[in-house]
Design a binder for these strands. Sequence first.
DNA 1: AGCACGCCGACT
DNA 2: GTCGGCGTGCTC
Length: 732
Amino acid sequence: MSGALQVIRVAINTPLNQLFDYLPPAKASGAQPGQRVRVPFGRREQIGVIVELDDQSEVPANKLRTAVELLDGDALLDEELMRLLAWSSTYYQHPPGEVISAALPAGLRKGAPPTLPRQFTWRATEAGRAADIATLARKASVQARILSLLIAKDSMPEAALREAHSNWRKIVSALQEKGWAECHETVADDSGPGIAGDTPPTLTQAQQQAIDNIPDSGFAPCLLEGVTGSGKTEVYLQLIQRQIAEGRQTLVLVPEIGLTPQLVDRFRRRIGDAVAVMHSGLTDAQRLNAWLAARDNRAKVIIGTRSAIFTPLAKPGLIVIDEEHDASFKQQDGFRYSARDLAVWRARQLKIPVVLGSATPAFESLHNALEKRYRHLLLPERPGSARQPDTHVIDLRQHALHEGLSQPLIQAMRRHLDAGGQALIYLNRRGFAPTLLCPACGITEECRRCDARMVLHQRSGKLVCHHCGSERRAISVCTECHTELIPVGQGTERLEQQLRKTFPEYSLVRIDRDTTRRRGELERLLEEVRSKDARILLGTQMLTKGHDFPDVTMVGIIDSDQGLFGTDFRSSERLAQSILQVSGRAGRGDRPGEVWIQTWYPDHPLLTTLLNGGYDRFADEALAERRKAAWPPFSFLALLRAEHSARVEVFEFLEQARSLAEGLATAGIQILGPASSPMEKRSGRYRGQLLIQAANRAELQHFLAGWRAAVSKLREARRSRWSLDIDPVELF
DNA sequence: AGCACGCCGACT
DNA sequence: GTCGGCGTGCTC
């Protein structure tokens, strides 16, 4: 390279949708993609990641600055991960620097070395053990207490000392001065103790068949459709063990609420301690530890939520997405990626199988299976004697409601409770009543910052907006005419009151965001259910995900009608999923379950198709509808959202964006809008959107690249807050 | 996003 | 007279 220019192209954590060219650091040789560099950026220094090398630059030579130093000897991010990140940045139209930042544990983002966090452990010396504690206690009681702790515990990590006393460092160094305590460095490794002791159960024929049909290697997307309780997890475990036997790793993605300690325990009991966990609740050190364990092949299984899709893998063998229909795999702000879709892309690049598991697959996935792009594996039965629950519809036109409960529902509950079973009652609305109405003037209490009604929370005596969180004191009479206000509709708080009145002899547990606010409270309540101390289980969506309740024999759905007349093309899909997910909680043990559904529309075609034809039949019909209307998966969408405290600003921006789009759109691109979002005002800001619909992905991608660049240069774009959502899951 | 520059209003 | 409001521009 005779004097040729050397340029490193760097991703920097900034909202600018571009890379930045630098000259390599003076003393460094062999800069390569995937290494972190410290670079001057504007008036500051930033940490970036080298994306590519070049021997020329578009940037004029006098503007090229020199990087300060390389932070890594070898690439921190391997080529495969860099490719995934680059593709994600392009596909989701998100700045490369922010994408890479999202993929790095916080410590590495800030420039820390990629090594396990150093951890120091303290212990008492021989002299310390022989010391006269009683005498010490007279002059320095805290030192004495800590010294006896060190003696009693044999050795203590710094974290434990910190808990013992906030000023621990000073105390311990005083002990060290006296020669009574010493410290040594240990390797931090808190991937809890796991003993692989569990023996695999006997498989059902369907489970065995699924396992036989999922290959060990080569790109193979597989949809594992299994009713709740049919043993999908067991299929995953056996596939994982096959990978481990081949010396390969498995990445398991689970929904946000699905990552429970019980799930991790189950994996550790089977697989041992080579299970690393990745989720947002970890400390920086724990996250770095898990990340490194995956990269260095110490972890054989990595279980994580959405962001774990960006975990580096030394020996990738398999990716599993559990509950693949779950909306939490799509990030809803900032870098709006779909971890499920990226998983399929990554598996293709890696040439490995990817298993999408669900009792209620996303219609997109089902469509891919029907089109034979995915292998379709079915687990129709429950292992052992457990049977599918019987479903009954309660026609509310014929049965009066008392405080939200109909007689048939109460009778069914009593029958199951008297027979020793547990009843689960599902109502996806928290608070006491969703509306506070003045019977005289018809006024309802509204949120001042949103287009929404305030929800009455009686116990706290507050009116709460469930959209922006604002609260005010509940009132009992109308501010206009002083008539007494009446709470209209049912929330879990009100239903709890009524159920306690109806079934005083059975104890009840309510699980929703309000009752589980305190740390550890959810676990405590779940334990009450599992130990059968509680017989009636009342709750919201929270109940339906990831928890096993083996003694629940009856499920009651209080209000199945929310979602029957939904606003977007996905609401029927979501309705079916939530009905089936909650129904799946019934009868997991050896007793058959029953599901009772209250509805005002027992003849609604959506409901009858779902209940008589089952999920796949329901999906068939819904997919036919979508094909007619050219909704996904028969088209591809991108949604430009904007918000501003002034309504006019939103539309000025969106109109400008629309005219840019009209100039760039090719034949297959449709521009819909701008329109107000379904709830136009939220948290004091007006919201609007522009929908782009395209017949094929490549055309959409091509259009979006040019459009996004043009939109971001609009003067109006600086005034409104806006975002571009590719493959949006929510259309508002 | 940061961060600076720059030009107008209400304060010690 | 200055402190500071946020509009505008720039980051290899």
